[in-house]
């Protein structure tokens, strides 16, 4: 864990010096006050500076961001990384130009990247945090597309009175479709086949 020790007139001063050194923001670090500042007599004799120890937090979102930073650096990509940690998941948004390559066909590359970051972040951890990586709102747009597709195909299944088989999708994408078609009384959904070729079937209820 990276840590620096700094002194300053006030605790805040010392902390901001340390943050500058670490190139980190206040949320990314832990601060331990080693010495409280005191003015001393006449603000002169025996005056003591504040001394703090500032160390980088090594939480899961930090590890995920660092790993992504390193990966993207070797790819020579200029990407902004924005991590948002919640109770059970970490949402990471990547922003930049020309990131289509990182998404890949139907998000294949993005899914691979997400999978690897997940493995690394949760390696030997007691509490697992799900890491979700999105690039320029790709996942959100894809979700809307899938929802529309689901509704259209549900209509088709109902009209023809026959099963409609969708193409293979990841569990995340299948969940979106199951969710949007949940609780209908005209059709129902289920999945068939083995990963990674598991696919959804929309069937009319009789």
């Amino acid at each position: 864990m990276k840590a620096v020790e700094k002194t300053g007139k006030t605790v805040d001063d010392a902390v901001s010096l340390a943050l500058k050194d670490l190139g980190a923001s206040r949320e990314e670090v832990e601060v331990t006050v080693l010495d409280e500042p005191s003015k001393g007599i006449f603000g002169f004799f025996g005056a003591k500076m504040a001394r703090v120890m500032v160390s980088l937090k090594n939480g899961p979102s930090q590890r995920a961001t660092n790993l992504l930073k390193n990966i993207l650096r070797t790819m020579q990509m200029q990407v902004g990384i924005n991590a948002n940690e919640k109770d059970h998941e970490i949402q990471i948004d990547l922003e930049g130009s020309d990131l289509g390559l990182l998404i890949g066909r139907r998000g294949e590359t993005l899914d691979s990247l997400q999978y690897l970051v997940n493995l690394s972040v949760n390696k030997n951890q007691e509490v697992r945090k799900k890491v979700i990586i999105d690039i320029e709102g790709y996942r959100r747009r894809r979700e809307e597309t899938l929802q529309k597709l689901a509704l259209k195909l549900a209509e088709k299944a109902k009209q023809r009175g026959r099963n409609v088989v969708l193409e293979p999708m990841s569990s995340q994408e299948r969940r979106i479709i199951h969710t949007v078609l949940q609780g209908r009384d005209d059709i129902y959904t289920f999945s068939e086949g083995e990963e990674p070729c598991r696919k959804i079937i929309i069937a009319p209820k009789k």
């Binding site: 790819m75 020579q76 990182l102 590359t109 899914d111 691979s112 990247l113 999978y115 690897l116 493995l119």
Partner: peptide, 24 residues
């Protein structure tokens, strides 16, 4: 096992990311 994974799932993911980088 940590770089190959069940049915080579991790190896596949590594190759996918490297391929994207190589395409550049």
């Amino acid at each position: 096992g940590k770089v190959i994974g069940k049915q080579g799932r991790i190896a596949k993911a590594i190759r996918m990311v490297v391929k994207a980088s190589a395409a550049r």
